[in-house]
């Protein structure tokens, strides 16, 4: 395999997007929270257009994928034709979706724009990839709960592009309920006494897992609980590259721009080194050391589910 996988990441702002392009990102997933799930920052249509301009005009072509992967209620779905039409006009390189309403709307409102199927924890097999492929998706974004063996088999058995998250936190729970507000009510306090939005430092600790901190936050779509560790696959990236995985995602949510730049540089170096000489490729400890230097000590770097066997 000599094709270079894409290095995909998020961005909280145009400023961060520009810095991460410089650091080596090939593509970005951005959007607005009305339509996109768990975004580090807001990109309205105006900012989206600027991002596309900046990305397409960069020294090497950089792609912009619009996050439209929320679960949609009637009201949100009713506004999709106009929104997807605008995204097509702006020239985004793909629409990322998890709710079939987006797929059917895009067929009419954004014909020709690539569609990436991303249902997070429920994208679990090659057969599902093919199902959405036959309905117009060109890429499947795999569940983070799959292991290396399963990921490789999916890549071998589907013709769709396969995207895998290789770094950062993952979402482990999404409720439509405002659970922090409800809890404040239970404590006899006003919800306004506690800022529960993204980036306010809230976390949960489970009784019997006192060393794990699970970030939690609320937005208009409910409550999110996030993993207590950050996936970090840089040591084993060659296994994914050898398997021909098409896109490697770095999640930048709840991280500083400096941290994200460092992570992107490290993965950029690993991808380029592998592409230049797959046979002679060697992992360099310095890539990981650079990440470790900025890693929040309360968040372990882990292999996620890549080397796990789950039971049920």
């Amino acid at each position: 395999m000599n094709t270079k996988p894409e290095l995909l990441t998020t961005a909280a702002s145009l400023g961060e997007l520009r810095k991460l392009m410089e650091a080596g990102a090939d593509a970005f997933i951005i959007g607005e929270s009305k339509y996109g799930a768990r975004l580090p920052g807001e990109f309205g249509l105006q900012e989206m257009a600027e991002a596309v301009e900046a990305a397409h005009g960069f020294v090497r072509p950089v792609r912009i994928y619009a996050a439209v992967n929320n679960l949609m209620d009637n009201a949100a779905a009713d506004s999709l034709p106009e929104y997807l039409g605008s995204l097509a006009q702006i020239g985004v390189d793909a629409i990322v979706f998890g709710d079939p309403s987006v797929l059917v709307t895009a067929r009419e409102a954004a014909p020709g724009v690539a569609l990436h199927w991303n249902a997070e924890m429920t994208s679990t097999s090659y057969a599902q990839a093919d199902y959405w492929g036959r309905r117009g998706a060109s890429r499947i974004v795999l569940a983070r709960e799959l292991n290396m063996e399963q990921i490789i088999e999916i890549k071998q058995r589907t013709s769709l592009e396969v995207q895998v998250q290789v770094h950062g936190m993952t979402n482990i729970y999404h409720s439509k309920r405002s659970l922090v507000d409800s809890y404040m009510g239970h404590l006899g306090k006003e919800p306004s006494e506690l800022d529960s939005r993204l980036g306010q430092g809230l976390y949960l600790m489970e009784e019997e897992r006192r060393d794990e901190r699970y970030p939690i936050y609320q937005d208009a779509h409910g409550t999110y609980m996030m993993s207590s560790d950050d996936v970090c696959m840089i040591e084993n990236l060659h296994e994914l590259m050898e398997a021909g995985i098409d896109s490697l995602r770095v999640e930048g949510l709840m991280k500083t721009t400096a941290y994200n730049e460092t992570v992107i540089r490290a993965y950029r170096a690993a991808i380029d080194a592998y592409a230049a000489d797959p046979a002679g490729y060697e992992f360099k400890e310095e890539w990981l050391d650079a990440i470790r230097a900025l890693q929040d000590p309360s968040r372990e770097l882990s292999y996620g589910f890549f080397f796990k066997e789950q039971v049920y």
Binding site: M121, T122, T124, R144, E145, I172, Y173, V180, Y183, L202, Y203, L204, M205, E206, E207, R209, R213, Y214, I216, M225, S227, S228, F305, K308, E309, Q310, V311, Y312
Partner: peptide, 27 residues
């Protein structure tokens, strides 16, 4: 996927261990 993370049991294949009913501290 709380079960997956807490106990390596896959909730979407029948392994849910009802972690949502466990007790937590909010910090």
């Amino acid at each position: 996927v709380l079960s997956n993370h807490f106990t390596d049991r896959d909730s979407n294949r029948g392994g849910c261990c009802q972690s949502c009913r466990w007790k937590y501290d909010l910090y």
